[in-house]
Design a protein around this nucleic acid. Sequence first.
DNA 1: ATGAAAGCGCTAACAA
DNA 2: TTGTTAGCGCTTTCAT
Lengths: 350, 350
Amino acid sequence: MKSVTVYDIAKEANVSVATVSRVLNNTAPVKKETRERVKELIDKYQFQPNALARSLIKKETGMIGIILPDITNPFFPEVLSGFDQEARKKGYTYFLCDTVSANADDAEQYVRESQYLNVLAEKQVDGIVMLGGRIDLAKPGKELVEEVVDVGKRLPVLLINGRIPGAGLPAVASDERFGAELATTHLIELGHRKIALVGGYRHMSNTVQRTAGFTKTMERYGLEVRKEWLLHDGFSVDSGTAFMDRLLRLPDRPTAVFCLNDLVAIGVLKAAVKAGLKVPQDMSIIGYDDIPFASYSIPELTTVSLRAHDLGRTAAEILHKMITKSKVPKTTLIKPELVIRESTGAPAPH
Amino acid sequence: MKSVTVYDIAKEANVSVATVSRVLNNTAPVKKETRERVKELIDKYQFQPNALARSLIKKETGMIGIILPDITNPFFPEVLSGFDQEARKKGYTYFLCDTVSANADDAEQYVRESQYLNVLAEKQVDGIVMLGGRIDLAKPGKELVEEVVDVGKRLPVLLINGRIPGAGLPAVASDERFGAELATTHLIELGHRKIALVGGYRHMSNTVQRTAGFTKTMERYGLEVRKEWLLHDGFSVDSGTAFMDRLLRLPDRPTAVFCLNDLVAIGVLKAAVKAGLKVPQDMSIIGYDDIPFASYSIPELTTVSLRAHDLGRTAAEILHKMITKSKVPKTTLIKPELVIRESTGAPAPH
DNA sequence: ATGAAAGCGCTAACAA
DNA sequence: TTGTTAGCGCTTTCAT
């Protein structure tokens, strides 16, 4: 079934396509009478202008691409909801580009990112926001960087919580060191002296930054950062239980553990409970991210909120400015917040 | 900065645009030598063909729209990941259209759905899949139905877990009654006789179907369905704790509660623990959906898996068939599965 | 206030 | 094997 076009409307209304276009876009005065005639036809045929044709000439599509690693990781929907809220308000529609790979193969993930970067450019999106993946790397490879920089030259590209060394790409980022300081200070002020840090990946910049914030704070208070209490390479629940099991087997245990994300904290919590420990009486646990589940667990998780929603919302705001060629700050920092719930408390006196 | 077009490539390669198009799409034989010359230029300029122009003439965009209520509800990312996997394999990119409204206003949500339906049609998506929202209604209003039916006439529209009465729109759906039977039977076989059903909304078809499955099973076993143990109107964690608080105040308490989704089950669990009950010894709790959190809680939640990932994957498969004009079944039913974990057990003998 | 006509960047007959 | 040309459906000068 053929779809109706401006020509069909124009012909039946005895006007030119230009006029139809004018009433469609309110782009020039049209005689009231003619306008109504045209509007009636539009209604009658449920005419929907072809956005492709329009975009082809106007050089703007109202489409955005958002590239992220894995929508089933509860952190991302939170960011997305903020992004959605603002983007919708500005009239954008967006492609969700999930780069997760079945076998958790990083290389494959980067390939996906590259593919999406291309597809999005071909589809003529007005802008792209990236989060996770290669931009989380502490030191990304040469080609990975170059690709993004190249795309960034052709259209607005904004980074959330990541960076591409050398490229002048604008970014919205969480103040990672500050967040880690928040968590560490909280534990210390509660009276903890023996604090473990678990989770994250050493090749990821968030991990190195949070670890730095932790270490710095410990040192500031003259506390020792013990090698055997520093367990990296894992962001999942399972890795969390594994970390805790390791910690539990140690002759000298920490009294508190700072987990580099909430998923790990959940795993740590599960392992602690299974081992018969009471949280927070026997062991304090603090997470990072403040995913929704953090407030669902028993006990509810104390954590550091990344303010994911704000991150997303801000990103949409800034990307819009980039698209409309307004000036934007190189980096917009979002301050994390400490969210004290039930999983942290004073250490048991002994 | 002007982008390069087929003309630029053609001119510099001393060929016609047709030839460039041919090497781009492998749509006709091109002399090896010419092909390479063209390819080199494409590479040199990092030429990316304009998908808008291509789609305008080919009448296919490789774009799909997916309309859903709220990406922060953990059920949807799960569906989406399955959908993504299959859609990507087939070469589609998709718009994520979240219709959540800040103030949880249903009417506003339906307005959003309508807007997206229009926008997607204008953007010439190859197909649309809807889940949640109006299609979850037990009896949706006339205009809500009509709109979808109209769009369905113009392009492929597929429903996940919902229906539009009267419209012959294909659907992929979970067998809700079966799922409820699964849960109820599990509880009964464990020895429970006094079972509560909480959660859901009476105006939603999933709720009426699950409730029907529950009631039918209870009757089959000659068990009584008590009015005061039937608590509806809520799908959130908070509503779950409220439901449980109500139940706990009753002189005659149930020994098990069947929650119409996992979020409610989490709330119920929290309230039970807070009240000093041991789960499952003092109270069995079973959820519905099997969101990731279900296996994170302590104790881990027994639940009914909707097989969200499969739902999404199947939807993408079927939508693709619709787009390519293959025959598709009117309704594809996905059988839920019982997932036994730790929150259900035999009732305490008294 | 309105119309004619020239594209936007690409594909696909149709010729050669 | 390659080129010419006519659109796809719309917006937008430039006339009138």
